[in-house]
Amino acid sequence: MDDLIEILENLEPDVDYKKTENLIDGRYLDSLKILSLVSEIEDTFDVEIPTVEIIPDNFNSAKKMWALIEKLKEE
């Protein structure tokens, strides 16, 4: 989880990732940042994020992103 927070802070520093739960709906992360984020997550955690998983529900908070990573790791 700490690695993920570090990735997010490098992308967009001025956000409290432990508390914020509307990263997409609140436009903290736009589509370009999502591209960087996906690429960074895939490299760091050795997973492949399918396009269908790129929905606000999976990226609105660090917690949800972590849950997605865990799910993809299991698969």
Partner: peptide, 22 residues
């Protein structure tokens, strides 16, 4: 966004391009 933008951006060639340009 769901059926054109992300599938193109996250296609293998463009993913590679993003990695290089980043």
């Amino acid at each position: 966004k769901d059926y054109i933008y992300y599938p193109i951006c996250l296609s293998k060639p463009l993913k590679k391009l993003t990695k290089k340009t980043r």
